[in-house]
Amino acid sequence: MLMLLRTSMRQLYICALLVGGILTNAPAHADSFPERPVHLVVPFSPGGLSDSIARMIADKLRFRLGQPVVIENRPGGSTLIGAEHVAKAPPDGYTLLLGSSTTFSMLPALRPRLPIAAEDTWAPVAIVGETSIVVSTRAENATIESFASLLAQARARPGAVTYGTTGPGTAPHLVGAMIATTFQVDMTPVAYRGSMQVLADVIGGQIDLSLDPLAVAKPLIDAGRLKPLAISSAARLPQYSAVPTFSEVGVTMSSGAFWYGIAAPRGTPQKVLERLRVELQTVLQNPEFQNTLAERAIVVGHGRAEDFRQRVRAEIAQYRQLAKDARIKLD
């Protein structure tokens, strides 16, 4: 009997040590984060703007975190492939998503049954930056000289005017639908894997229009390869003073910017999120980083998670109304 009691007490003591270790180690892991490389998933092809932004962030963030930041390109499915990979990853801060307004606002608005559509899918880290959207065509396009002539062509040849998208529910798709609905014209979307392929085919004459972020189209506009027709900024931009804004040509878009943000899977420990936010904020405030983004027509964002959440809520409501007006249904 005494032997049995000693054995039982020994087992209880071992269990107490194990439970105590589990309880004390959980916050310890968060306190020591990161202890291994952090993976930043980009749901776009290599070589594009999102990939470039991710690599700039990774290059500076690795010094702040003291660990490598590895870029993983997982394109496809209108950013869904990469986004779902991150959403299903362990919520430990080691797998992050560099997504865009397509991922966080547009797709959830149009496809509410998606696994990533729930409001609590993500633990926001920061809005990285934003840029305007520009409608452009190849510089040599003699039939489309202005936004007015674009509309004239679309009215004269219903369905003949084509524009590139990076998939259903992405920013170019919605902007094209917005233009078509506003002016009661018929234009044809053509899906590509990435914006670089869209721009190549616009320049090559395979399709008529790009409706991409200015940061993506800017190098080709500045090189004289693309002709901008309208831009979503609130006012005309000094460097493109001849280009009218969306509001000037009659397009109403309450959120005129395409933005990029970093998020972790829901359930990520608060201490880990705070570490990521603090270090990312330091990167975003770096003058060299800001100047590099400014050269690409990107305004740097900030680190407040609540701003991220509020923006997503507001944009989902806006895009749902647009989808209803334009009769867009993806589910």
Rank of each mutant, 00 (worst) to 15 (best):
T182S: 10
L220H: 13
P265T: 07
D222P: 02
L174W: 07
A235G: 04
P213L: 03
L199T: 11
Q239K: 12
R266M: 03
V251L: 15
I203W: 01
S195V: 12
G194D: 15
V198L: 05
L237Y: 05
I207P: 04
S247N: 15
S233N: 08
A215M: 01
P213Y: 06
T188N: 08
T252S: 13
D208F: 05
T188E: 11
L237A: 07
I179T: 07
I221S: 01
E248C: 11
Y240M: 15
A242N: 14
P244N: 05
Y240E: 14
G169Q: 09
R193D: 13
D208C: 10
L211F: 04
L174H: 05
L174P: 07
D201K: 10
G256D: 06
D212N: 13
A235L: 10
F246R: 01
V216Y: 02
V251S: 03
A180D: 11
I231Y: 00
Q197D: 09
D212R: 02
D186Y: 11
V190F: 09
A177W: 07
P219S: 07
S233V: 01
D208Q: 14
A215W: 03
A191H: 12
S232C: 05
A263R: 02
A242G: 06
W259F: 13
D201W: 02
L229V: 11
M253I: 07
D208K: 07
A230L: 07
I179G: 04
A242E: 15
M253R: 13
L229P: 05
S247Y: 08
P228K: 09
G224M: 03
S241T: 05
A217R: 00
V202R: 06
G176L: 08
V198D: 01
T245H: 10
L237P: 02
L229H: 08
L209F: 11
I203R: 14
T181R: 13
L229A: 09
L237Q: 15
Q239A: 15
V251F: 08
T245K: 08
T188Y: 02
P213C: 00
A200L: 08
L229K: 10
G250W: 14
S195I: 08
I203N: 03
L226S: 09
L220T: 02
P228W: 04
S232R: 06
Y192H: 12
A223S: 13
M253K: 08
Q197S: 06
A234C: 02
S210V: 06
A191I: 00
A191D: 13
G204T: 00
G256H: 12
P238G: 11
T252D: 10
Q197K: 00
F258Q: 01
G169N: 08
P189F: 04
M187A: 05
S255K: 07
A177C: 01
D222G: 01
T188A: 06
P172H: 06
D208E: 15
A200R: 14
L229I: 12
G176P: 05
G256W: 11
F246H: 03
G194H: 13
D208M: 06
I231R: 03
L220A: 10
Q239E: 15
R193E: 12
A230I: 08
S210F: 05
Y192N: 00
G169S: 10
D186V: 14
P238Y: 07
D186G: 02
A263Y: 02
A180M: 11
G256Y: 14
A263D: 01
